[in-house]
Simulated scan of single mutants.
Amino acid sequence: MKRILENIIEDCRKWTSKGEVASYIPELAKANPEALGIWVTNLGGEEYFAGDWDIKFTIQSMSKVITLMLAILDNGTEYVFTKVGMEPTESGFNSITNLETHEQKQPLNPMINAGAIATVSLINGETADEKINRILNFTRKITGNDEIGINYNVYESEKKTGNRNRALAYYMKGNGIIEGDVEEILDVYFKACSMEITCKDIARIGAMLANDGVLINNERVISREACRIVKTIMVTCGMYDASGKFAVHIGIPAKSGVGGGIMAAVPRRMGIGVVGPALDAQGNSIGGIKILEKLSHELDLSIF
């Protein structure tokens, strides 16, 4: 396996020159566009890695999987999906169009920014600090990494430039989709996106999802049914408006982030974490997608 991963990394490095790092959040523009790495955790606890797997980067939109799981744990699936839908979108991840045109005025799914802001608002906690601490502690538990924390430089950068997200949040507040203080909810959202992780951490989350909500130490953290819903939404919505193409060519439940990470869960087989900060036009790691495409073909990972 290690040789396979090393060969794939080498083959895919050329793709990093064809993408660009995220610049709309100034702090993310400092990432190395040539970095490329992978970590694989199988359900037997065996782990393999190659390339720049150990670089730290912020979780960004992969946190949407975590906040969705917590919202379900706190409220149940039925209530969560009265506030956010389950449908894919052909619009960008930060589009406001769907909120205006959708009959219920709710976000189409939890994997776009509006949907994630809505699910963050559902997480239990009397204060913003309590909410983000629950997110941090849950993330530490499902990764097995107690050192995970917030990159405050990225958080401040996101907060200063997050006016599109503010527009989404206040629009939803006006339509009764979210309750509570909008700025506090956004603060939790920005901090959740700014958690600093490695490929190993997101591969561990992927392995838990691949194992129907059970950690590699056999502890269940989310129900099988909730886990099934999360993975299904990852397939249909996890790669933004490129989710259909990703499903056709790679066929693995996955979620990307503009920090360059992609978290993937191959049911009953493995979790995969990749990083490549150079992004394509949809905001997905251009090298990361090529890695997953080659690995899926090599190991026959597609669920379809």
Rank of each mutant, 00 (worst) to 15 (best):
M172V: 00
E179F: 14
P253H: 07
G176H: 06
Y189E: 01
F93C: 02
I262T: 04
K18A: 13
Q104G: 07
I72R: 08
D300K: 13
L301S: 00
D181Q: 07
A226I: 03
V80N: 07
T161D: 05
A226C: 08
I216F: 00
T16V: 15
I112L: 03
F57V: 09
N175A: 11
I178N: 09
G125W: 15
I142V: 13
G259E: 15
A116D: 12
A50Q: 11
A167L: 02
F190E: 15
D146E: 14
K200N: 11
I4D: 14
A118G: 14
M69C: 08
S194M: 09
K141N: 09
T67D: 07
S121V: 04
N133E: 14
G51L: 05
N42A: 04
I177M: 01
N151A: 04
I197D: 12
E27T: 09
G251P: 04
G37D: 10
Y240R: 02
M111A: 11
E10M: 12
T198P: 01
L292N: 03
N75H: 08
W39P: 02
F304M: 13
S194C: 00
Q282E: 12
T139C: 04
I135Q: 09
G149S: 10
Y170I: 03
P253Y: 12
N124C: 11
Q106E: 08
Y48P: 06
Q282D: 11
G174A: 15
G288E: 07
A207F: 03
L279P: 06
R228P: 05
V120I: 03
A118W: 10
I229R: 14
I303Y: 11
S285D: 10
N153S: 05
K30Q: 05
I303C: 05
I185T: 04
T101N: 08
V188D: 06
T119P: 01
G180E: 10
N145E: 11
A114P: 04
M195E: 12
A192I: 09
Y24N: 09
E126W: 03
G206I: 11
E87G: 04
C199F: 04
